[in-house]
């Protein structure tokens, strides 16, 4: 029997765990639509809250009953050693970029994107501030990727998976404006990632990969 | 030669790494005051920024030149397997509570405490909301600690170290109001932690342990 991941459709936080499972071969059943799971109802039930006291998703339940909340912990648990970082230094660097994604990317990216989705009041000043923060953060990523294809070591790790997933909404919602201060390295990095077969397993990433290839194409043109 | 941790004095984020090093025996030199390190100047130097592009502290530099930023990554690197969680499930649970501290404790704790430090403007509604959030979070911790002394397994882990350090500001700044909706389990848990010798290595915690013993005493009285 496979383990279950409770979430709602298109949840970028759940993608981290889904991609990790793709790489590691962990068997995972996604419960994201009724009747298996209805976000807003099922996660308020006493049974769910007894296992996941915060009522947040994604939430993981193994076939042995082992329960886990917080998306980074679930993705880490479903990863293999290659994704987690196979040396103490590599695994610490993976955690560094996972923390970076949560603490440096998500807050400004959400402040920029939420108004475009109509789920938050638009405020010009706050959006301009968020854009500047995103620009600063992409510059750090771009500098790091100047001489590297992957964030840690010579192959995909949970660091890359987490950072790309945390940028998903930016790519989908504000791709054009992202482009104007986009950095070639970032697009290359994201492009090479999202074209990997594990990533394309999700329709979401096929959209993403299309847009990033477009983005890459544009950047090549602009650079040319 | 020992590795160096760059920070400013009384930085609770650096305490996580310092306590981890205490437990694991990793040798760590703290650079937090002039001339070794001056926060606001040294972390803006080109040398520092080339190693730590965000310019944030704590920042770790090994005697082998290995550099790490993001406090959770540094604490994880300086830990031993017992602190990190010695099984895949335990290590995932450690990461779960580390994420919990960052995403559930720090935001409302900062919103409540910053105005008391004069760091931010006081806003009654925001403070009341933050108090409710802290109350909700402590209730989750309290429920989990109903049947446990430690957050993961039967001994101290990085989960405990991270959660106690993330509560430090609250203990120090709003101890009294915390008491009124404090939970006996939380105080016991924090009390047992901060009385451990590794924790008392820092003067900060000796203050904390005194106040928590006081808190524990008060709670016993109130329960009596």
């Amino acid at each position: 029997m496979a383990a279950t991941l409770y979430t709602y459709p298109e949840n970028w936080r759940a993608f981290k765990a889904q991609i990790a499972a793709q790489y590691s071969g962990a068997r995972l059943k996604i419960a994201s639509t009724s009747p298996a799971f209805t976000f807003g109802q099922s996660n308020r039930s006493p049974v769910f809250l007894s296992n996941f006291p915060l009522g947040k998703v994604p939430a993981y339940q193994g076939d042995d009953g082992f329960c886990l909340f917080e998306s980074n912990a679930i993705a880490h648990y479903l990863s293999n050693d290659a994704l987690r970082g196979s040396t103490p230094q590599a695994s610490a660097q993976v955690l560094q970029w996972v923390s970076f994604a949560d603490s440096e990317i998500i807050p400004p990216a959400s402040a920029w994107v939420f108004p475009t989705l109509g789920i938050m009041q638009f405020n010009k000043q706050a959006t301009e501030q968020a854009k500047e923060e995103v620009k600063r953060v992409l510059a750090v990523l771009n500098q790091h990727l100047n001489t590297r294809t992957f964030l840690v070591g010579e192959r995909v790790s949970l660091a890359d998976v987490t950072v790309v997933c945390s940028l998903l909404w930016l790519y989908k919602q504000v791709k054009k404006s992202l482009f104007y201060f986009f950095y070639p390295n970032r697009a290359r990095f994201a492009g090479c990632h999202v074209n990997l077969k594990q990533f394309l397993a999700f329709n979401n990433f096929s959209i993403l990969s299309e847009s990033i290839s477009v983005l890459l194409f544009k950047i090549v043109i602009s650079l040319a | 030669m020992a590795a160096t941790l760059y920070t400013y004095p009384e930085n609770w984020r650096a305490f996580k790494a310092q306590i981890a090093a205490q437990y694991s025996g990793a040798r760590l030199k703290i650079a937090s005051t002039s001339p070794a390190f001056t926060f606001g100047q040294s972390n803006r130097s080109p040398v520092f920024l080339s190693n730590f592009p965000l310019g944030k502290v704590p920042a770790y530099q090994g005697d082998d030149g290995f550099c790490l930023f993001e406090s959770n990554a540094i604490a994880h690197y300086l830990s031993n397997d017992a602190l990190r969680g010695s099984t895949p499930q335990a290590s995932a649970q450690v990461l779960q509570w580390v994420s919990f501290a960052d995403s559930e404790i720090i935001p409302p704790a900062s919103a409540w405490v910053f105005p008391t430090l004069g760091i931010m403007q006081f806003n009654k509604q925001a403070t009341e909301q933050a108090k409710e959030e802290v109350k909700r979070v402590l209730a989750v911790l309290n429920q989990h600690l109903n049947t446990r002394t430690f957050l993961v397994g039967e001994r101290v882990s990085l989960a405990d170290v991270t959660v106690v350090c993330s509560l430090l500001w609250l203990y120090k700044q709003v101890k009294k109001s915390l008491f009124y909706f404090f939970y006996p389990n939380r105080a016991r848990f924090a009390g047992c932690h901060v009385n451990l010798k590794q924790f008392l290595a820092f003067n900060n915690f000796s203050i904390l342990s005194e106040s928590i013993s006081v808190l524990l005493f008060k709670i016993v009285i109130s329960l009596a």
């Binding site: 298109e10 | 926060f39 720090i106």
Partner: peptide, 30 residues
């Protein structure tokens, strides 16, 4: 997805808090 996303707890103000904390400790450290 947007509706669900709206229920996520995001610390939108984190950059503002980071900046305030940085200034506070820079002042503290002279």
């Amino acid at each position: 997805a947007a509706e669900c996303l709206a229920q996520e707890r995001i610390w939108f103000d984190k950059p503002r808090y980071d900046e305030a904390e940085r200034q506070f400790y820079e002042r503290m450290n002279g």
